[in-house]
Amino acid sequence: MARSPSVGPSPAPGLVTPVPWWRHRRVVPWVVQGAVALTVLVVVAFLLGNLIRNLTAAGLLLTWNWLGQPAGFDISETLLPFNAELPYWRGLAAGLVNTLRVVITGLVGSTLVGTLLGMASFSGNALLRGLTRTYVEVVRNIPLLLQLVFWYFVVFLSLPNGTAALQLPGVVLAKSGLYLAGFGDGLHWIGPQLQNGVWQAPLRLSVEFGALLTGLIAYTAAFIAEVVRGGIAAVPKGQWEAASSLGLSWWQTLIKVVLPQALRVIVPGLNTQFISLAKNSSLAVAVGYTDLYSVAETTLNQTGRAVEVVLLLLGTYLALDLFISLLMNGLNRLVQIRER
């Protein structure tokens, strides 16, 4: 009935005839939503139906009993004690702790390096500025995974061993690991020592951890540098001029005047970068560091419990992201309030 509304006979004005539902402005949105919801429901029901049917056929219906069975595999480097006799859930927990270890140290390291790089891009020294820029452009345009395997296979695995290892006071870097001084045997401060050609120290980190941490920090720092640079650039130029006219040096101006204001812009950007660092830590598997993902992969291969393992993995990473977001939102509120 496509007809120009201005032509032809019709009821007198004021007599509103009912509007058909497919043209009703309040009904149509609900019809559209209903259609979308129905499509989504049908697709989800189809997938879930298949899942249940296929799992039943394979005898793999969702259970969590297997988590209590002995794992049968070992993890070379753990903070939580673990061995092959302990159940799967202990293994997954050890993997999670390993993930948290690299995420937390990575967050601290990349924030420090990234902030320094971001500040350096405002230096008066053109060479320093150019070098920072080059670093960011190089790192951002090369895949992280490629960088990680480079750090591991090319840098860390070609470190010398024994007496030829890189030695600094309290720190030794060798192919067999990173050795740090610390308290041992009661309360004695002990540095790394070479015993029978093998380094010993209170604290040993594996090269796998070292390569992963270095790679993650080098990569994330480039992105954080951009966030910091953007935050500093967002502070009006007048602030620099006002501070230097009061006699503050470049460094004082940056620390006391500009950075506190820039934090408002920087903190939300950091949130994104921290979450992506947490997710990127799952690339540990490429350099042989046993994180949560790597334990989950082994678990799946041994138990065949695809659905449960995938659900556990996704749930854990989503929870980790949420936790970081909550922390950063708290920090954000702090920064914003201090402004007023």
Binding site: S282, Y293, V310, L313, L318, D321
Partner: peptide, 10 residues
Amino acid sequence: GAPLITLLFL
């Protein structure tokens, strides 16, 4: 929210 590797794994 999920790391790409876990999605590929899925």
